[in-house]
Nucleic acid binder design. Sequence first.
DNA 1: ATGGTTTTATGATCTTAATCATAAAAAAGT
DNA 2: ACTTTTTTATGATTAAGATCATAAAACCAT
Lengths: 199, 199
Amino acid sequence: MIDHTSLLNSGAVLKKYKRGEFLFREGSIARYYYQVHQGEIKMNNYNQEGKEYIQGIFTKEKSFGEPPLFADFKYPANAEAIVDSEVWQLPKEKFLKFLEENPDIHHKFTSTLALRLYYKAIMVSEISTQEPEHRILRILDYFKKNSDPNTIESNTYKVELTRQQLADLTGLRVETVIRSIKKLEQKGELFIKDRKVYR
Amino acid sequence: MIDHTSLLNSGAVLKKYKRGEFLFREGSIARYYYQVHQGEIKMNNYNQEGKEYIQGIFTKEKSFGEPPLFADFKYPANAEAIVDSEVWQLPKEKFLKFLEENPDIHHKFTSTLALRLYYKAIMVSEISTQEPEHRILRILDYFKKNSDPNTIESNTYKVELTRQQLADLTGLRVETVIRSIKKLEQKGELFIKDRKVYR
DNA sequence: ATGGTTTTATGATCTTAATCATAAAAAAGT
DNA sequence: ACTTTTTTATGATTAAGATCATAAAACCAT
């Protein structure tokens, strides 16, 4: 989202996180702007029984956790490294100062927020009114749409998400996802090769 | 959100809608900024079987449906009048021009977006991992928090939502909401007087 | 006042996804 | 190479909330 030179000039530092490590926790105060440099970060919630809901997965150059920097509230979810990762960290004040000096980038962030709101509106409606197969297709199409176009061969997108991750993104259980995917394959909505899902 | 004088100066008009009338439909292109003047507007989705999900309810002076004005996508939900209402309507271009000329208000919209994202993140996680009673309390507390402080007597908030609306906001069925509310009353989490819920 | 609509209410039954149990294949770590 | 962990897989059972049916109370319109 913000180029490396600008990040460095503004005072950002590159932090390393091990797989499974938390960058911040639900309920804590937002002090930094974060942007993935290497690896994968997920934002998630756990309920009392430990069931996970994944709010989003962020890869190379994607920023996350900005909303509480724009308004006064605490993180609604955790940020956790899915794999060993490197993440740019820029203090809140410096981030906001940078945006003031770069209105064009400020606009980009506004439209990113709007787009994320769009995605959340769709997912919450899906989860509350649609059945498993429908929900799974939505997520697959969302990830397909947001994937690197170069990785899509002959209009076929290879899903790099595990069945468990699909479950945690759709509010389903892993067994339900496995069974639904099989049904979707029978219906011709996707296909499976070497256990990988293609859509 | 935007004061009446500014709205009029920018070229907004006041439109009337009857109860049940749609202001716009899911999938259509956003051409206007909307702000409630009188009445109540809900944004919602219907699935194939007609089951409704209410994304949000907007009252006096609240704006809605702005996200697609900031990025390039179509409405993810409908806007429908809950009661006879009057709504300010300002063409997209004039709205964006107004924001450019008023950076302070632009900031307000950004933080409104951020806050709405916060609410959606909480609701989607609730709906996918929490049980009925928990979800209902969340919604009640959200509406309590966003209610006019003058209407709260001795820290007790009177819920003006119907059981059906609570159901459509939480992805539950009306019977489940009715039964859950009764249980919550037994547990002392809320009380019912003349069929109205107080929290 | 009266008839129609909406809202709240409650019991009975059903259905779907969750849960539980178990295991094999694949991937990762030492 | 071998052990451990993760991921995918499948069958059996359960439970929670949805669905169905019905009705009374409250509200609204004329």
